[in-house]
Design a binder for these strands. Structure first.
Length: 373
DNA sequence: AATCCGTGGGG
DNA sequence: TCCCCAAGGAT
């Protein structure tokens, strides 16, 4: 029987880590230097959960005000489960990755229905919740329940890449698996939550992406890449593809002081968010953009409009897309049989709907125009 | 495995 | 200005 060949070295930590107490040294630093953050007030699983979802791909300073507002509006798991989805999206407006909010509420409802309102404390159960992946599962299990599970995020991958001089590409999924194996070997009994947070805190405060502060690092003595002088060259990370350009014509359609908006589909980009009607145009298309816009909106919303004048151009970049939006002021001509995802609302009422940042920029264009007139 | 999914800050 | 990238997950 041919045993599967496994590389021993990369999955096993140097003996010094155990002999000299890497985990103890890191924890001692964390105990004295950790930041006071709102989600560290207690270990309520719901509070930890919300913080971990908000912190996905999002900076601590950005999260702070959103977290405070969210916990005020939805103080308990039950409150979140019972809230209208639109209110949850509104509380997330501007944070990005809006599926996080929709998944979080869906998962809260799942916990209410299936687990009696108690966030599950096993890897198998918690991993089934929407929006809870390997990192978040480990974070909740360790921080809220003190389970010895790794929570490997970008910080931890950077820290371990430098500590052990790992040259694996941290953009590849396999690298996270490997580092989870390594972290698992040094999680101290009874302090899994603090240890995982200490690794992330180190990555955020000391072992930062550029110009790491090695002279103040509590685990300086363990760091192989520093001994080799290559800490600035780690971690290895493949480059992302540049955003794909998309050209859009946006219609600000007025009718008796009201403007037409529509709700985006429940899946995909900016799912469930409101927007001003728009149509994608091919750069090489010979047709006038005004005509493409009018025809496109007639097909989608059964409205006839007159395109009046250009209001300006708005640029907005996502991770994988770059929107170039030409904004047009339009008059409604005919068509009252709007599809259910579209409606005319007064300009004063717009704040009650949730718009992505790209469309907030369009609102600014509108505002400037109305200030002139 | 590769792609989709937002936004803002810092060098 | 441009580019990186930040307590990732779903498909």
């Amino acid at each position: 029987m041919a045993a599967k060949k496994v590389k021993e070295l990369p999955y096993t930590l140097p003996e010094e880590f155990h002999v000299f107490g890497f985990s103890s040294d890191l924890l001692a630093w964390y105990d004295s230097q950790k930041r006071d953050l709102p989600w560290r007030i207690n270990r309520d699983p719901y509070r930890v959960w919300v913080s971990e979802i908000m912190l996905q791909q999002t900076r601590v300073e950005t999260v702070k005000p959103y977290y405070a507002n969210f916990m005020e509006k939805f103080p308990t798991l039950g409150a979140l489960a019972e809230a209208p989805e639109d209110e949850v999206l509104k509380a997330w407006e501007g944070l990005g990755y809006y599926s996080r909010a929709r998944n979080l509420q869906a998962a809260a409802r799942e916990v209410q229905a299936r687990y009696g309102g108690i966030v599950p404390d096993t890897p198998e159960e918690i991993a089934t919740l929407k929006g809870v992946g390997p990192y978040t599962a480990g974070a909740i299990l360790s921080i809220a329940y003190e389970k010895p599970e790794p929570a490997v995020d970008g910080n931890v991958m950077r820290v371990f890449s430098r500590l052990l001089y790992l040259t694996d590409d941290i953009a590849k999924p396999a690298t996270r698996i490997k580092i989870e194996h390594l972290v698992r070997q040094v999680i101290p009994a009874g302090r899994a939550g603090d240890f995982n947070q200490a690794l992330m805190e180190l990555g955020a405060m000391v072992c930062v992406p550029r110009s790491p502060q090695c002279l103040t690092c509590p685990v300086f003595d363990y760091c192989i890449s520093r001994q080799e002088g290559v800490q600035e060259d780690l971690p290895i990370k493949g480059k992302a593809k540049p955003p794909r350009p998309v050209h859009l014509q946006v219609a600000v359609i007025m009718r008796e002081g009201q403007v037409l908006i529509n709700k985006r589909p429940e899946t995909g980009l900016l799912a469930g968010m409101w927007e001003f009607p728009m149509v994608e145009t091919d750069v090489s298309s010979p047709s006038a953009k005004q005509d493409i816009l009018a025809n496109g909106l007639y097909d989608r919303f059964a409205v006839e409009i007159e395109v009046l004048e250009p209001l300006g151009e708005v640029q907005h970049t996502f991770s994988h897309l770059h929107w170039s939006m030409q904004v047009w002021s339009c008059d409604w001509i005919a068509g009252n049989d709007l599809p259910p995802n579209a409606k005319f609302v007064s300009v004063d009422e717009l704040d009650t709907y949730t718009f992505p940042m790209a469309h907030h920029k369009i609102r600014e264009i509108m505002q400037q125009k109305s200030d002139l007139s």
